[in-house]
Amino acid sequence: MELSYFPGCSLKAQGHENNLSLIEFSRAVHVELIELPDWNCCGSSSAHAIDPTVAALLPQRNLSLAPKGRPLLVACPSCLLRLKQAHLALVRDEAAQAAYEQRWQTEFDPDLEIIHFFELFSRIDLSRYLDNGENRLNNIRFAPYYGCMLARPPDLRFEANYHGLMESVLTRLGAKALSWGYGTRCCGTFLSVAKPDLATTVVNGIVSGAMDVEAECLVTACAMCHLNLEIRCTLPKRIPILHFSELLSLALGTSDPKRWFPKHLVDPRPLLKKRGLL
């Protein structure tokens, strides 16, 4: 299967370990990711905060670059929202479509599928790559952390949702999902820069919430959440924060996970060694 791939700034320029492991996992399940040529920033939290025109047009250019007939896989939950909202706004407004075509000198594709990495799991058969009863992740206890990615603005309420996806996939791979109270608590996004103390309060609540249920690690599907949980946590004792894609790659035995584990600010290697996963 071939998919266009939109990594977004967070994976491309900072969450390298997320990007590498996501690409390697996809390769292992025979999905070829073709990076969207010359993609640009989706506008992040800042464009819609202060400039509605820039916020509307930045995702549009990305839509204009996507080849027809090939779904666009997005790695970052926040980029996904921006791209989907921009696409939906165009689908609903013919005048805006005409302006789009004039602006970007290309035909608008109302059928472009924009999917999150999670949606890959409804398109592949993971059991093809596993033997029955295999326990590849050796009962590692994880707290699934979704941040704000399960919350949607009302105009996207009928789009695919992902409740429980990390739990079901990682359980299938032999990890043990824990039930806890902070899985959908926002990480603070840009407040981590402008209000670090506020972000620290929230992040410490999340990480200690995971440790209270005896999690050995937190698993997140967002590179920004990952960064905030790592840099803003001030607890004396902390657990590693792993990207969902890292555990997937590890379970599927891709080439060299040791390449990206050293990039963590909280080293996950002692835990992974203890569990016999490295």
Binding site: N40, I50, A194
Partner: peptide
């Protein structure tokens, strides 16, 4: 902060953290 982010996107097309 928001202005700096947009400044970066205007300059590079992507954010340079």
């Amino acid at each position: 902060f928001h202005r700096e982010v947009l400044h970066s996107v205007e300059r590079y097309g992507r954010t340079h953290k």
